[in-house]
Design a binder for these strands. Structure first.
Length: 947
DNA sequence: TGCAATGCATA
DNA sequence: GTATGCATTGCAA
């Protein structure tokens, strides 16, 4: 470093607060009962800075009485700050005493905040040739950063980072640190109660800044915004300006930087020692003496300081006494107390016999007993929610209501495997029925131990999904609804998620037993309940032949996961940035010069003055050329440069939702992405996918669909096969309605939308215009969703009355379709539900509502649910059959994904021809309709190519 | 930290 | 107009 003098300005309150909250979980209280956390925290930071940096000049700045100017501007300023904690209030005078003893100047100015004092001083020092370091964690200070003014910012886990101009540019994505003020003004700051612009947070503020550069320019160009955002910002321009003012650090506080006064000289060691002794700071006293004793130039790194002792070893599982483990020795049942029918039962109020099984002989006896059962409910307890990484902590079993056993699993992997081996005959027994709640999870966990769950299955969650798809199906809800019983909550055992949540392994064995066996017991009781109801709802077949077999299929697919080119994924984010650069270059080339694409002003001049893309460019209120979305997309088809600009704008969204998110979901152990298919959330019978959702990977836009390139085959011996049903929902509605005209079109392999257009607009098939086909397509989809003229006119260029006319003509063309629709609605009115081809029901309680809006929605559901649901039924059948054939044929090919009407396979190349035939045949013949089903196959080295 | 509202990705 | 999941934001704790 040069010989330039260095001034450190310390933001006292920021460091005091930070120190105080650092100890919040474990406050420092001395023998006099004084909470010294804040003092300790602050002094640690201060000494740390001195020791590390040895500043020539240093001062500590405090607030006094808040900022009168800002309160004048905005009465709410800092109004919602919590009352300052007591420990901080008492800390301030003590810290000031210590500073005096250390001969460190204290800067305060009534009516000004420390920010303003520091700002003013740093600018003065800059003029005098100093390098200034503002010691504060508060990001507001970034606006002051210049070539000679830096932020010196404590970071979590110790250490500091220095923010100069490049750091601020990067962090806030701005050119000039002064734009930090605009940034803060836009996004607001809840702790200072700076309102900001409504609806604008960090991401949006950065976007705006890149595009408009400042608050003022944003407000001058709100016409370019869309939707709610536009309304909100236009309505709150003044608030934005005010917010910016509030966020601005003042530079004209009446204080003077006096170099001599600020020189860091020797402290009054005795005085400081006395205060520290009084506070009972022993370590800090040592630290202080070391810092100021002359010979300490560098601090030894060998000294094992602080945190080392804090390392917490997870509590070992309590090894209970032998008696507790004995199989039949302990009866911890509780007598039933009389409960009114309004009081829910719990484990405490109902009689039960739950017991843990000890290792050794007890386990052998237990398993012998287990093997004699014909139907057993089980529930695994694990260390987490992700079955790929979770380890078994125990398994609960129950085959008699009110009674059950819990087998804890050792943490040691080999021992756990030995134990599961003993249970293998049970799980793999074909003759013992297995009952569970969400068995897919347990099956996946056990698969990780190489155990296959065989035999008949009964999943209470799936059963209830068929009985009442609109409800939720978690066990607590089911127990309360059907058994009038409240199970022990998981949070009671392991705490709320986040900070101190325990792993199931850390829970006492007795509690584990109570909790786990209770789950198994309740599940068993629910099974008895739902068994009857399944028959009554006529969905037994759907349960046995679709949902239960599908559960095995899904667990296999989920465990398999899909390969992601990890290098590609990890770099895709940067590649996108490269793409942006390429787009920029291409735009510059076309434009013939470089300019700021993000600036609408410059862009408008380039497009409409230089390139003269249109004769009469649309202008905005402020007289500038409009470059808004709708203007540009209108020009997009004729000009590549416009497409590039639109792409450029759309990238950030893509990046955050997919490109940056997906790599974090790659499982370390497998290098693959394992989605979780939800079998019980979609009321229509569809699956849904989450963590991550692989059913909404972009495909419509060129840039978006690039994400699909990241989904690749297992290795070079494999290829991806995508098989999708063509127009399955329209085929279903044609078949169900028996509308011959439409059925014929499908039988003849016609382009259905063109065919519809030809009939509705009464033109020969080969003379259908693009627009006619497009409108016909919209109506076809509208039918599936339960059309209204209003909805149709929103989707097309047609007016409301034209839409109505089109729909009327459509119904005239396909009269049976109209019949079908009214039949569905009538059926729903009479029965309260509609159903799919396989009898999957959806109950529509609002179908007879007197509220037309509510009733209308129910009527659309009545039309859509059987269509969407039947399509779901059919692909589920195909999946089950394909799964079985893949196993039976011992193929290496795996089924990986389902996207509603599409299946994706990882095909072993030598099997390709066989698999293509197999998949196509199984999908097309999954269910017999009066309309042929048609499946398109595509292969490729990634999911994008396979389309 | 958890919730609702908004907007947008898919079929 | 149907069915989902998720990122971001603001607000309530």
């Amino acid at each position: 470093m040069s010989d330039q003098k260095r001034l450190f300005l310390v933001d006292a309150f920021a460091l005091i607060f930070r120190g105080y909250y650092a100890f919040i979980k474990n406050p420092r209280i001395n023998s006099k009962g004084v909470d010294t956390s804040a003092i300790m925290g602050f002094m640690n930071s201060l000494l740390d800075v001195i020791k590390r940096e040895r500043p020539d000049h240093l001062a500590v700045c405090f607030d006094k009485g808040g900022s009168t100017d800002r309160v004048e501007m905005y009465a709410e300023y800092k109004a919602n700050r919590d009352e300052t904690p007591e420990a901080i209030k008492i800390a301030v005078p003590i810290i000031q005493d210590i500073l005096k003893a250390m001969h460190i100047p204290i800067m305060v100015k009534a009516g000004f905040e420390a920010d303003d004092v520091i700002g003013t001083l740093s600018k003065q020092a800059e003029k005098e040739g100093y390098k200034t370091f503002m010691v504060t964690p508060d990001k507001d200070f970034a606006q002051l950063v210049s070539e000679n003014i830096f932020m010196y910012r404590p970071v979590f886990g110790g250490g500091y980072e220095t923010w100069g101009i490049p750091e601020v540019q990067k962090k806030f994505e701005v050119e000039d640190p002064l734009q930090v003020i605009d940034f803060l003004g836009m996004m607001g700051d809840s702790s200072d109660n700076i309102p900001g612009l409504p609806g604008v947070g960090e991401k949006t503020a950065k976007k705006f800044l890149a595009q408009y550069g400042s608050m003022e320019n944003l407000l001058a160009n709100t016409h370019e915004l869309k939707g709610k955002m536009k309304e909100k910002i236009e309505a709150n321009g003044e608030l934005g300006i005010l917010s910016k003012k509030l966020a601005t650090i003042m530079l004209d506080v009446p204080v003077t930087f006096d170099a001599k006064d600020f020189e860091l000289d020797h402290p009054d060691i005795e005085a400081v020692k006395n205060i520290f002794q009084d506070l009972e700071f022993r370590r800090l006293t040592d630290n202080f003496l070391k810092t100021f004793s002359t010979e300490t130039e560098t601090t030894p790194t060998s000294a094992p300081q602080k945190q080392e002792a804090q390392k917490v070893t997870p509590k070992e599982q309590k090894s209970a006494g032998a008696g507790q483990f004995s199989l039949f020795g302990v009866d911890d049942s509780v007598t039933t107390e009389t409960t009114s029918e309004y009081t829910r039962q719990t484990a405490k109020t109902s009689s039960h016999f739950y017991q843990s099984v000890a290792p050794g002989i007890a386990t052998k006896l237990f398993i012998k007993n287990l093997m004699n059962q014909t139907s057993v409910c089980f529930d695994t307890e694990t260390t987490g929610l992700n079955p790929i990484t979770a380890e078994l902590v125990g398994i609960a079993f129950s085959w008699e209501i009110g009674k059950g056993f819990y087998m804890p699993f050792p943490e040691d992997k080999n021992e756990a495997q030995e134990l599961i081996e003993q249970l293998r005959p049970f799980f793999e027994s074909e003759s013992i029925q297995k009952i569970g709640q969400n068995l897919k999870y347990d099956i996946k966990v056990l698969a990780k131990y190489n155990v296959t769950v065989k035999g008949k299955l009964f999943d209470t969650m799936l059963a209830h999904y068929l009985i009442n798809p609109d409800m939720r199906h978690n066990m607590d809800v089911l127990a309360e609804t059907y058994l009038n019983y409240t199970p022990i909550s998981i949070t009671e055992l392991i705490g709320k998620k986040g900070k101190n949540q325990l792993s199931m392994r850390e829970v006492d064995l007795e509690k584990q037993t109570e909790y786990a066996v209770e789950d198994a017991d309740i599940t068993l009781q629910l099974k008895e309940h739902f068994e009857k109801e399944l028959g009554e709802a006529n969905t037994q077949k759907l349960f046995d032949e679709i949902e239960i077999p599908l559960l095995r299929v899904l667990s296999t697919m989920e465990l398999e996961g899909i390969n992601l080119d990890k290098a590609f994924l990890n770099s895709l984010s940067e590649q996108l940035n490269t793409d942006i650069a390429n787009l920029e270059k291409s735009i510059y080339d076309t434009a013939g010069e470089e300019f700021n694409i993000a600036s609408p002003k410059q862009l408008g001049i380039i497009l409409f003055e230089k390139m003269k893309l249109v004769d009469k460019p649309k202008k905005t209120k402020t007289g500038q050329y409009s470059t808004s979305e709708d203007v540009l997309s209108y020009l997009a088809k004729d000009h590549k440069i416009i497409r590039n600009i639109l792409d450029f704008r759309g990238l950030s969204k893509l990046k955050s939702t997919y490109v940056d998110a997906l790599p974090t979901q790659v499982e370390e152990t497998t290098g693959r992405v394992h989605t979780d298919y939800m079998q019980t959330v979609a009321a229509t019978g569809r699956l849904s996918s989450n963590n991550p959702n692989l059913q909404n990977i972009p495909i419509r836009t060129e840039r978006g669909r690039q994400v699909r390139k990241a989904f690749i085959p297992r290795n070079e011996n494999y290829t991806l096969l995508a098989a999708d049903y063509s127009q399955i929902e329209l085929r279903i509605i044609a078949a169900l309605s028996k509308e011959e005209t439409m059925i014929e079109a499908f039988k003849n392999g016609e382009d259905i939308h063109a065919s519809t257009a030809s009939k509705v607009f009464d033109v020969p098939l080969n003379q259908v215009t693009r627009e006619q086909r497009s409108n016909a397509k919209t109506v076809n989809f509208g039918i599936i969703y339960g059309v209204s003229a209003f909805g149709l006119s929103n989707q097309t260029d047609l007016s409301r009355s034209e839409s109505k006319e089109l729909i009327d003509t459509y119904y005239a063309t396909y009269p049976k379709l109209r019949n079908f629709i009214s039949e569905q609605v009538d059926f729903a009115r009479d029965n309260g539900y509609v159903q799919t081809v396989l009898g999957r029901r959806r109950y529509l309680k609002d179908i007879n509502s007197r509220n037309a809006v509510v009733r209308g929605a129910a009527e659309r559901n009545a039309v859509n649910a059987p269509i969407q649901g039947s399509a779901a039924d059919i692909i589920k059948i195909a999946m089950i059959n394909i799964h079985e054939k893949l196993i039976a044929g011992n193929y290496k090919t795996k089924m990986l994904l389902q996207v509603h009407d599409e299946l994706v396979f990882d095909v072993y190349k030598p099997e390709l021809d066989t698999i293509k035939t197999l998949v196509k045949s199984e999908m097309e013949n999954a269910y017999k309709l009066d309309v042929p089903l048609d499946v398109d196959l595509d292969i490729g080295d990634n999911w994008l190519e396979a389309h």
